[in-house]
Design a binder for these strands. Structure first.
Lengths: 146, 146
DNA sequence: GTAGGGCTTGACGCGGACGTCAAGGCAAGG
DNA sequence: CCTTGCCTTGACGTCCGCGTCAAGCCCTAC
């Protein structure tokens, strides 16, 4: 099949396929007139790349999977190098998730503190003190427009 | 103080400060010879920006905080617009964390399946069969769509 | 005088995964 | 013949937060 059909079947663009080729993934045969010519194996290979891309893998990280399929293995992750990428990625994901969770907590605390400060200021302005025990009360529900 | 000192005290670079200025954050007075001239308020403002940047906020998202400080408020998050950014960011973080957790689970399952397949292949190669029901492994237990 | 440091503006580079435009070839239909 | 639609290569644009270099001015010290 030609590049347009492959792109359509993989749900991507021809530009992307040419880009992959320029990166050394997804080589293509050529027909007599110079058009790229792909087969079902190329489609499988491309789907493997796209799946990993959807996971957030960088293109280079998909290379072991591609090489694995090219070597004739039934799946892209049938090779040790692919498993190593999986494991490294798991570590990265755990680290990133933990980091984001930490940031989330800090932002949540900042928000809570700022809301409380705003609430107290409003209370004072209205001559009405909050008067609760100064600890960490349950977060205000949704008093401001989001 | 001049730009070099401000950069040092904020733990960033002069290039970064000029960039912030070009973006309309962090305006600077000028001395007679054309040098930028900053004061302690600018430092506070800059620290606010840097804190949010460390949280992963985009520069544009720090603008409400900057405007808030410039308006004379005691903290950058004393204004409704800043709180709105906090809330939006919390939502984004929750979404992102959930998505990453979903990816993490998928990668973990892929890894487990590939490891098991590799183990069985090795077992067969060694004349030792794993012996579990040879069909598809049980469907993934939890679908964490992200 | 001159070396050295800090400052100025301007402009290009980077990384990642492409989008988009330009100029032109190839094949099929009317 | 001409149009339409697919294909080719090449090259520049995008986003973001800067890094880095270039050319030159200001001030101080020796």
């Amino acid at each position: 099949m030609r590049i347009g059909e492959l792109a359509k079947r993989a749900g991507t663009s021809t530009r992307t396929l040419r880009y992959y080729e320029s990166r050394g993934l997804l080589a293509a045969r050529r027909t007599g007139n110079g058009y790229r010519d792909y087969d079902e194996d190329d489609l499988r290979l491309l789907r493997q790349i796209r799946t990993l891309q959807d996971f957030g893998f960088e293109l280079e990280e998909t290379r072991p999977f591609v090489d694995c399929l090219r070597a004739g293995h039934p799946a892209g992750d049938s090779c040790p190098a692919s498993l190593a990428v999986y494991r490294r990625k798991l570590g990265e994901l755990d680290g990133l998730i933990g980091q984001l969770a930490g940031v989330r907590e800090q932002v949540a605390r900042q928000l809570a503190a700022a809301e409380e400060a705003a609430g107290e200021a409003a209370g004072q302005a209205a001559g009405h003190t909050a008067g609760d025990g100064g600890g960490e009360p349950p977060a205000p529900r949704c008093e401001m427009t989001g």
